[in-house]
Nucleic acid binder design. Structure first.
Length: 429
RNA sequence: GCCGUCGUAGCUCAGUCGGUAGAGCGUCCGCCUGUUAAGCGGAAGGUCAACGGUUCGAAACCGUUCGACGGCGCCA
């Protein structure tokens, strides 16, 4: 048994091969059937001529609709009439499972593709995105491993949130209420006191009723936390990690990237250092572009797009005003109005992919902030404990996997960066 | 939460001034031994999202509801 990728080669011409897969396109012309076969690795045309296969095989080949699963035997030939330049001339054509008329045809609406997601994920685009995503994840894991980070497994069911601002999914947990995690950060912070450098890859959940091309209710969150690290070190980790992810995707998936209309060369050029733009500089730049912003304005979709649309490399926005960010960030001694934090924006207008900071180590400051917000201090007791027993400077960040996939794969919408997107309107299929 | 658009055949859509339903693709049948979204001939296929109103008459006009999509906010 061969894969289609193996067969698409001059070395294979004249060889007898066996393939199995699904019918991607089919046309018949009386005594000849042209069936384009798809497997996990690619597509190739199979020609089935009456007389060259058993009559029963020919009848089945003529009858089999798109997405029927088949096994074939035949000889590889180079033929410029065939899409892709190669074809297999069948001597056997066995239908394993006939397909009913496939619901997804040449004209497709967004709604249909979402309703038929379990079938649409067979598409070549979705196949390519899945492979690029896997390559990005492998690049990240390899980088962390080479740099002595320990992968840890924080809980998903939690009693409380790390941030007050976002909405949590509530679940019934035996005889009380619990929440689905929106960040592993607090748990990672607790683990650095023995492991020093940790990371995790978990689903995170946000119950906001977001309706944008950048938000999912359930997404894959890669988070890192390191002891003895300041925010400059934190940004260096981010730029190295993102570069390692991209380089691995370029290495493992050049064909997939091209199918997605992403030129691998533009990704290959991305390497540290990334530009660092202070929040104040971002405000000045946006004002020079005629946008009505001032100190204290948050960077929304339009602002992020304005900053990154002409950029080739990601850009850090550093030192946000405190009022725009959560309480656990470390005050910036050079400008106490701001935090030692950064957001990393992807180029070409894609926007935020990472948010990170050095963490506050002064419990008095955090308690004051929490009290001012009227938070229940019991929920934070264990977190505040971490500063009581040998506290150290430390930093970390969270990276949205589907956000980086959206950018790398040049997608219009984040829902295509995950097989089964969960949004306010979609939990099925 | 806010602003906007849309809902007609399995799919993508057209339907003018309110006069009772159309096309392409797909499906089924027939023809075709080199197709590239194949071609040719024929057939089947409709609760015009739902409910209410206006009217002699509503897919169309008005109202309500439901659903979907596009964007903003929130964030990764």
């Amino acid at each position: 048994m061969s894969s289609i990728k193996q067969v698409l080669s001059k070395d294979m011409v004249g060889k007898k091969v066996q393939l199995r897969g699904w019918i991607y396109r089919t046309r018949s012309s009386g005594g000849i059937v042209f069936a384009v076969l798809r497997d996990a690795t690619g597509i190739i045309q199979v020609t089935v001529k009456k007389g060259n296969v058993p009559d029963h095989d020919f009848e089945d080949a003529a009858k089999a609709a798109i997405e029927s699963s088949v096994m074939i035997e035949g000889e590889v030939a180079e033929d410029k009439r065939a899409p892709g330049g190669f074809e297999v001339r069948a001597s056997r054509f066995t239908v394993v499972g006939f397909s009913e008329p496939f619901p997804i045809t040449e004209y497709q609406s967004t709604e249909l593709l979402l309703d038929q997601r379990h079938l649409w994920i067979r598409s070549r685009e979705q196949n390519a995105v899945a492979k690029v995503k896997a390559a990005l994840l492998k690049g990240a894991r390899d980088w962390f491993h080479e740099n002595d980070y320990v992968e840890v497994t924080p809980p998903i069911v939690t009693a409380v949130a790390p941030e007050d601002s976002t909405t949590l999914f509530q679940i019934k947990y035996f005889d009380r209420i619990a929440y689905l995690s929106q960040s592993a950060q607090f748990y990672l912070e607790s683990l650095i006191f023995s492991l020093e450098k940790v990371y995790s890859l978990t689903p995170s959940f946000r119950a906001e009723k977001s309706r944008t091309p950048r938000h999912l209710a359930e997404y894959w969150h890669m988070e890192m936390e390191a002891a003895w690290m300041d925010n400059e070190g934190n940004m260096e980790v981010q730029e190295q990690l993102v570069t390692a992810m991209l380089q691995n995707a370029v290495k493992e998936c050049p064909m997939e990237l091209q199918l997605l209309k992403r030129d691998p060369a533009t990704l290959r050029k991305i390497e540290p250092p990334f530009e660092r733009m202070k929040y104040q500089e971002a405000m000045d730049y946006l004002q020079s572009k005629g946008q009505d912003v001032r100190w204290g304005s948050d960077l929304g979709a339009i602002e992020e797009r304005t900053i990154t649309v002409d950029k080739q490399l990601p850009v850090f926005i550093v030192n946000y005003p405190k009022e725009l960010k959560p309480f656990y960030m470390k005050e910036n001694p050079e400008d106490p109005r701001t935090y030692k934090n950064s957001d990393l924006l992807a180029p070409e207008g894609y926007g935020e992919i990472i948010g990170g900071s050095e963490r506050e180590t002064d419990n008095a400051r955090m308690i004051a902030w929490l009290e001012e917000k009227g938070e229940n201090m019991d929920n934070y007791k264990w977190y505040l404990d971490l500063r009581k027993y040998g506290s150290v400077p430390h930093s970390g960040f969270g990276l949205g996997i589907e956000r980086i996939v959206t950018w790398v794969c040049k997608l219009d919408h984040i829902r295509d960066a995950i097989p089964y997107p969960r949004t306010v309107a979609r939990v099925y299929p």
